[in-house]
Design a protein around this nucleic acid. Structure first.
Lengths: 337, 337
DNA sequence: ATGAAAGCGCTAACAA
DNA sequence: TTGTTAGCGCTTTCAT
């Protein structure tokens, strides 16, 4: 049923090559010939078979983006930016999610979930450097996020320590001195939460403000209910912070919900700063102050890095590319105007 | 560099066909032969080239999902469900967004954005039935959402009129009689907002409650700020509803933010019901009562319909498949427990 | 049970 | 400027 180049060629009474030339806008075709072929194309409703083209050229025009969870607005917004950045280069994006599970991340990184891609952008949570060792390197990989891996793959991130320090500095500037960090992870040292905790510690130390352990609060996950549970646990244990710096906006939002339930007023009783700048943070009853990573820049850097590997300019790889961030100050630290 | 069947065949000293048989688990292969070939496969690190396989079989194993906006959590959550549903059948999902723009939707529906797909799930906003006429039918299409099209494509939806009626009935049951509808569209009769408006009207009529025009509020888009603007405009014009039924949760959340700013208490002064049941609605200062469409069912129905078209069982098409919904009652109508 | 060979639709040398 | 042909890697008759 589908119309192929051969059919068009037969119809126009020319060779396959000529039709191919027209389809690909090869310059050296006489206008008359071009018109004749085009007519046949239109009459037959010919559309090139991209699978065949891809087999021939060894490229598919598809890159994959694998994030932990699309339900996390940060990743949804990031995915939007990646789709746009890819579209600028006429690439489409295959989306996958790993649920933040290591075995899923390994599968994705080794291309077992989607094996028709030119490149992969992976935002890992639990993946270990060793998981990347066994990787066959035919598909270029770019890593996203906070984790540092000593591997020959480019890595896109913001300066997490500096960002966390900016957040804590802002809270100190508002007169807060008992600033809880919501987002510690007990299981491993270099998990995503780590660098932000380092920033929290460094900034407090620089200001000469104590950083007692009971203000470092572990969370079980990255979602609103994890933040709510952590906040409730903290308050139940009798600790009373005057500010909270959360690993991400979702955790901050969960924490704010609990503060609200307990009758604590944000920011007067407890100020809150999040991380990610998701749209949701702008429209709560109390809008959320947050660290805003430049998601479009992250997307552009990731796609750019991938395309560079694809064009294979003797890419060294292993670079860390840094995107900007800024602190967006809203009601959860400033109060209502 | 990549290893092909031929390489493996040479290594194992057998024919290509035999290797292919092993790779595809063809039953009639002697164990000895299978072991020998497998050894060569492992040694060479052979991985099948899916592009070639696809060219041969005419299938790619990829379906596309095109939604208006991934930044809308409803669509992000739906996308998650579709990816999972597709994965169950070993399909991967190419994600695209249309920004709700008709020309983008037309492009996507005609396969111009991604032409290597076996099927397409499209959630249209502005697309018109006529846009689907010129479609070459080689790629099966399933439509999602409220719009009804008289076309030979399956359509997945919930009963929007019944859902809207349930929402309004709930508000009436809470003693509300001036229920504003936030989400009318002025531009066209059969836009997405229409059926829910019909439900609003029907339920009010059934209860003998007046439905004055000034309670039907147009919105400019589908996002939080559109809801905020609409709510502010309504209040500024002096209209004072005792409840709001919003086209979707984002609009409801924007409206609640404005009510909060104006010192109106939800639900005591104004009760609010949304539509979509996005996770965000559960964690605001006032949790949101909402109509919850069964997203997993929608995803399963859509993928199922596509696969049925693919296996080409003389599919008639043009059916409307209906998923369930339920009303989730929360603080924005019940108050705080 | 295994092998030989054709061909999916396309692009790119090379030839004319 | 246009045509001929090989071949991308795989599956699949058809032989053996």
């Amino acid at each position: 049923m589908p119309v192929s180049l051969k059919d068009v060629a037969a119809r126009a009474g020319v060779s396959i090559k000529t039709v191919s030339n027209v389809v690909n806008n090869y310059p050296h075709v006489t206008p008359a010939m071009r018109a004749r072929v085009q007519e046949a194309i239109d009459e037959l409703g010919y559309r090139p078979n991209l699978t065949a083209r891809h087999l021939r050229k060894g490229r598919t025009g598809i890159i994959a983006l694998a994030v932990p969870e699309l339900g996390n607005p940060y990743f949804a917004e990031l995915a939007t930016a990646v789709i746009d950045a890819a579209a600028e280069h006429e690439f489409t994006v295959l989306l996958d999610h790993t649920r933040g599970r290591r075995e899923q991340e390994v599968l994705v990184s080794q291309g077992f979930r989607a094996r028709v891609i030119d490149g992969l952008i992976l935002s890992p949570l639990e993946l270990e450097a060793e998981d990347l060792q066994g990787r066959s390197d035919d598909v270029p990989l770019v890593l996203l996020g906070e984790r540092e891996y000593d591997t020959p793959h480019d890595h896109i991130a913001i300066d997490n320590v500096a960002a966390a320090r900016a957040a804590v500095r802002h809270l100190l500037g508002r007169g807060r001195t008992r600033i809880a960090y919501l987002g510690a992870r007990t299981d491993s040292a270099n998990r995503p939460a780590h660098l932000r905790l380092v920033g929290w510690r460094e900034e407090l130390a620089a200001a000469g403000v104590p950083a007692p352990d009971d203000l470092v609060v572990p969370v079980g996950g990255w979602d609103r209910d994890d933040g709510a549970r952590a906040m409730a646990g903290l308050l139940d244990s009798g600790v009373r912070p005057d500010a909270v710096f959360a690993l991400n906006d979702l955790i901050a939002i969960g924490a704010m919900r609990v503060l609200h339930e307990r009758g604590l007023r944000v920011p007067w009783d407890v100020a809150v700063v999040g991380f990610d700048d998701i749209a949701e943070g702008r429209f709560g009853a109390v809008s959320l102050t947050t660290v805003s990573p430049d998601k479009r820049a992250i997307a552009r850097l990731a796609v750019g890095s991938l395309l560079r590997s694809l064009s294979g300019r003797g890419d060294p790889g292993g670079r860390t590319l840094t995107a900007e961030f800024r602190l967006v100050e809203r009601e959860s630290t400033l109060g209502r105007r």
